Structure formats: C-alpha cells, structure tokens
Simulated scan of single mutants.
Amino acid sequence: MSSIMVSEVYTCELDPETRTTLQMYLFKNVRNVEVIRNNIVKGVWNCAIIKPSLILHPLQVSVAANRAAVAQKHNTMVTRTVFAEILYNLSLTKNITQSLSKFGIEKDSNLLVCFLITPDGDDSKEIIQQIEGELCPISNLSQYSNEKDIKAVYKLNNVKGDLDLLDVIVSRMVTKNIVSH
C-alpha cells in the first residue's frame, strides 16, 4: 500500500487527560470483510469497525470515542473493550449486543475503521495494511451515509423542522443514560 494521504485520515485529539487521539479511515469495496470481522470478534485487532451508513459526520464517532476513552480511564466502561464502548456510545440503546450488531461490522463492504492512538500504542499502520479495499478520503463519508437508516436508528423519523440532524444525534447519544428517547 502506498503512503496514506492526510486527507484520507480523520484525526481528533480526545479529552487531554486520556492522552488519546482518534484516527478514522474510510474504506470501500472491502474484499476480506469476514477476516476483518473475525479479527475484531476474537480481539486480535485493537480497533472499532463501524458501518459508515449509520454515520452522518465524523463528529458523531469523535463524541462516542471520547466518552469511551474517558470511561476507560475512570474504569467505568459498560462493555469489555474500549472499542466495543465506542459502538455502545454511538447507539441509543442500553443493550450492548444490539449496539454492537447495529453499528459494528457485518457483511458491508464499506467500513469506517477507528483507532485510539495513545503514547503506549498505535496499531493502525499494521492493521490498515491488512484491509483489502480502497482507502477513501474521509470527506467522502456522506456518500456512504444513509439518512433514512440514520433517522430510524436515532428515532428521528417524526422530527420536524430545520433541526440540525448532527446536533440532535449527538445530543441523543450523550443523554442516553439520562433520557429514554
């Protein structure tokens, strides 16, 4: 694989006390989805694989990743791994299995790959090289988003008016432990 262009990677510093950076890569036409899924399920790979069809904007994942990193630091995670915690935080449900199956990898050939980079580790380069697909600029994410599915997952089908969809989604994600939607 050739060197990765900066525009193809989304990078975001998370809460300073976690000393963690989120990196996201968008792939299309992935040919080894089953191998990737097995590596995730068995815990071989330290990353989260997300269905891009349910992601409106990288901010959505940044918020979920930040909450996961903070929960890990404070030993308050609901799931077993920080990467499962990202998927859990993306979802409105408190059901871990539903969260993982809704947002996690299935058989889709388009994938959003998320890494948490810390001073102690960065597995991104090693894992990225094993994904058999086309790396796309993260700016193309909206081409893979399915607004109808996003509205269904976040229970926004009855929302009327000019509300900013991303604002509503992020608000619902961060208040899921307080409010039932």
Rank of each mutant, 00 (worst) to 15 (best):
L100Q: 04
D120A: 15
G121I: 11
L116V: 10
Q129M: 14
L111M: 10
D123E: 06
S99H: 09
K102V: 06
G121R: 01
P119H: 07
P119F: 07
D123M: 00
F103Y: 15
S99A: 15
D108W: 02
I105L: 12
I131A: 03
S124V: 13
L111I: 06
E126C: 07
N110P: 00
S109F: 07
G104S: 04
D123W: 00
Q130R: 15
K107Q: 11
S99D: 10
D120N: 07
S101L: 09
C114V: 15
K125G: 15
K102F: 04
S101V: 11
F115V: 13
G104A: 09
I105P: 01
I127E: 03
E126W: 00
I105H: 01
G121K: 00
I127M: 06
D123C: 01
V113C: 12
K102S: 13
K125Q: 14
V113E: 08
T118K: 03
I105Y: 00
C114W: 10
E106P: 01
F115K: 07
Q129H: 11
I117R: 12
F103R: 02
F115C: 12
I128Q: 07
K125C: 12
F103T: 07
I105E: 07
G121M: 07
C114P: 09
D123G: 04
S99E: 09
K125D: 15
I105R: 01
G104D: 13
D108T: 13
L112H: 06
K102H: 05
E106W: 03
D108F: 04
P119D: 11
I128D: 11
I127K: 06
D123L: 02
D108N: 12
D120W: 02
I131Q: 00
N110M: 08
S109D: 15
L100K: 02
L100W: 03
D120M: 11
